[in-house]
Design a protein around this nucleic acid. Structure first.
Lengths: 341, 341
DNA sequence: GTTAGCACTCTTGGACGGCGAGTGCTAACC
DNA sequence: GGTTAGCACTCGCCGTCCAAGAGTGCTAAC
C-alpha cells in the first residue's frame, strides 16, 4: 500500500519540514535529497501520499506539509534514531550534581534540563506524596499553644506543619498521640487513610479533643500535598517557533500553559506505560491541535512516580525528544534514589 | 513655567493615551475633554509641551505621546487618585482566606492578586529566611545513619533537612549537639552566624567529627534559604498590551522575566522606603525602557521583609497600581502575622 | 492671546502587477 | 508501465501607486 520509495519520500519531506518549517516542494526535495528520481516523479508520489492522507496542501501550488497521520507514520516507523549524545549525558550529570541540593529541586531542574536539550516546552509532574506510604510522625514542642508536626513518608519526603494544641492538652498528650498514629497508620499510603484506620485511632486515643487534634494533623498532612506539583520549563521556546509568530496564537498557548489543572489533566490522560506520543489532531484539546506531546513515566522500584513530557509544535524533533525522555526517566530514578533511604 | 492650562492639557493627553494606546491629536482631545479652548490653541500648547520635553512626536503629523518626563510630572502631581474599591478589598480578603493555608503560599497568591487587579505583571520578593533570627533547632531520629534536623526561625518558618550521622555518633550525641547550638546561636540572625559563634560551638562540642556534623547542619540551614524567593504573576497581561503586539518585543520581555537574578537585582535596586515609581527611560536596564515599575516594601513590626511590585508598559494605570500596592503592603503584614507567633 | 483656515506630512489600506515556487497534466521516452 | 520533460496555471509575496484620514505648523484675522 505504501511502498518503500513512498516511505523514503515521506521521510525526506518530514525531515525537511521539521528543520525548515516551510512547505516542501518536489523540486527542492529532489535537489537536497539524492532520491534518484526526478521532481516530476516525486510530484506523482506526493499526490498519492496526499490522497492517502499523509500529506496536506495549504492551497494549490504550495509545497506539501505532513498531516497528523503523516507524522504518526513517521514516528511509528520512519523516525531516524537520534540517541542522547555523550555531551548531553555529561551536561545532564553535571547539572544535577551542581544544582540539586534538595529533593524538591530535582523536578524543577529536570524540567529545565529537558527544555534546554529539546528546545521545547517541558512538563514534569512530581510524585504525589499522597501515594507514598506513611512512615512516621513526630511532634516537636513549639510554645504553649502549638507544636510542630513532622511527617515522613517512604518516598523520602519530610513535611512539617504547625498545629495548634487544644486548650488543656499538653505536649505529652501529643507524644502519646504520635505513638497511636504511628502504630495505626504504619505502612498505609497517605491516600488510603480512611475510616477504619481512623476508627482505630479514635478507639486508642479515647479523649475527644485529642482525637480532633489528631484528625487535624492527619488532614493537613494529606491535603496540602494532595495535589501533585507541576513544573514547567522553557515556555519561551514556543516564542521561537515560526508557527507561533502570531501574537494571538502564542497568547493562546501561553495562557493554556498557565492553567495548571488543565495541563495536569492532559498529562494524566496521556500517562501510558512507557513513552507515548500524541500528535496534533490526536490531541483532544483543540487548543493544542497544532502541537504534539511526548510523555514518559518514571518509576522507582517498580512504583509509578510521575510523568515527564515535552510539548512542541507538531513539527518538532521527535527523535531527539523521545530518546531524551527515555534517558531521563531512567536517570531520574537514580537521582531520586540519592535522596532516598 | 508650566501653567495650569498646560497641566490640564498634559493630564488629558496622558489619561487619553493610557486608556487608548493611540497617539492623541489636538482635535480629538478638544472633542473628548471640555477644555474650553479650540484645537488650534491645544496645538500651540502641545508644541510648547513638546519643546519642554513632556511630549513626543513619532513623526510629523501624528498625535503626541507622553515622554518619560511627561509621565514623571503626571505621577508626581497630576495623577487623579484612584483608591482601592470596596469590591477589590473584599476580593483580596476572600482570596487570602480561601487560598492561603501555609505561609509560603502567601507570596504566590499575593502575586496573583496584584496581577489580577492591576492587569499587569506583578512581582513579589518574599522575605529572606536568612535575615530572620534563629530560634531553635531540634533533631528527630530517622534511621541508623541519619537524622532529621528541624530548624525554626523567629519569622515563623520551619525547615527540615535530612543529615547523615558520622560513623560512631549516636542520636544522643546529636541531641547534645542541638543543645549546644541552641545555646550558642540563640537570637542570632541566620545571616550573622559567623566565626565567633562557631568557635564557641566548637569549644563546647569538643569532638571533631561531631563539630563537622554540626557545621554541616548549620551550613545547610543557611545555604538553601540564602536566596530569597521571587514570585511572578500575570505575565500574560503583557501579551495583551498593544505596544507588545510584536513577537520580538514580547519575546524580549518574557525572556527577561525568566531571568530570576536579574529581576531580583532590579527589585533590590528600586527598593526604597515606600512607594517608588520608575518610568520608562529612567530604568537602567534598556530592555525595560518601554516599561514602568512600581515597587513598595512591606514590613512587619518595623522590620523590612520584602518588596512587591508591578511591571507594565509606561502607558500603565499608575493611579490604580500605586494605590493597590499601598494597600497590599499594609495588608500583607496582617496576613503574615496570622502565621506568626 | 485665541482661533479659523489652509497647505503639508505621514500612516493606512486597498488595488494592481510582476516574480518565484510549486502543482497537475499531457505527451514522449525507455 | 513506470518515468520524465515541458508547459500552462495558481498562489503567495512584495513593491508601487493612490486616495482617505488624521494631525501638524503657520499665517492672518479676531
Amino acid at each position: 500500500m505504501i511502498d518503500e520509495r513512498k516511505q523514503r519520500i515521506l521521510q525526506a519531506i518530514i525531515d525537511d519540514y521539521i528543520s525548515s518549517a516551510e512547505p516542501v516542494g518536489s523540486r527542492t526535495l529532489a535537489r537536497k535529497h539524492d532520491l534518484g528520481v526526478s521532481p516530476a516523479t516525486i510530484r506523482n508520489e506526493m499526490a498519492d501520499l496526499e490522497m492517502l492522507g499523509y500529506l496536506e496542501h495549504i492551497h494549490t501550488s504550495s509545497g506539501r506539509i505532513p498531516s497528523s497521520k503523516g507524522y504518526r507514520f513517521y514516528v511509528d516507523g520512519l523516525i531516524p534514531p537520534k540517541p542522547v549524545t555523550d555531551e548531553e549525558r555529561a551536561l545532564i550529570d553535571r547539572w544535577y550534581k551542581a544544582r540539586v541540593k534538595r529533593i524538591d529541586e530535582v523536578f524543577q531542574e529536570t524540567a529545565r534540563l529537558i527544555s534546554q536539550v529539546t528546545r521545547n516546552v517541558s512538563m514534569v509532574l512530581a510524585p504525589q506524596v499522597s501515594q507514598a506510604a506513611f512512615r512516621c510522625l513526630q511532634f516537636l514542642p513549639l510554645d504553649e499553644q502549638r507544636v510542630i508536626a513532622v511527617i515522613m513518608t517512604d518516598a523520602g519526603f519530610v513535611e512539617n506543619k504547625i498545629v495548634g494544641m487544644p486548650s488543656g492538652a499538653t505536649f505529652e498528650d501529643f507524644q502519646r498521640m504520635a505513638g497511636v498514629i504511628n502504630h495505626c497508620l504504619a505502612g498505609c499510603t497517605l491516600r488510603s487513610i480512611q475510616g477504619p484506620a481512623l476508627k482505630q485511632i479514635r478507639d486508642e486515643i479515647r479523649e475527644e479533643s485529642l482525637y480532633e487534634a489528631a484528625l487535624e494533623v492527619i488532614q493537613r498532612a494529606l491535603d496540602s500535598e494532595k495535589r501533585e506539583r507541576l513544573y514547567l520549563g522553557g515556555t519561551r521556546h514556543m516564542l521561537e517557533q515560526p508557527e507561533f509568530h502570531d501574537v494571538e496564537k502564542i497568547k493562546d498557548i501561553l495562557l493554556m500553559l498557565e492553567e495548571e489543572e488543565l495541563i495536569k489533566d492532559i498529562l494524566h490522560a496521556h500517562m501510558g506505560d512507557g513513552l507515548e506520543v500524541t500528535i496534533g489532531q490526536e490531541n483532544e484539546n483543540r487548543r493544542i491541535k497544532d502541537c504534539s506531546i511526548i510523555t514518559a513515566t518514571y518509576h522507582l522500584d517498580g512504583e509509578l512516580l510521575g510523568t515527564i513530557a515535552v510539548l512542541g509544535p507538531t513539527r518538532m524533533e521527535y527523535a531527539k525528544a523521545m530518546s531524551l525522555l527515555e534517558y531521563m526517566n531512567t536517570n531520574l530514578a537514580d537521582v531520586i534514589r540519592r535522596f532516598h533511604w
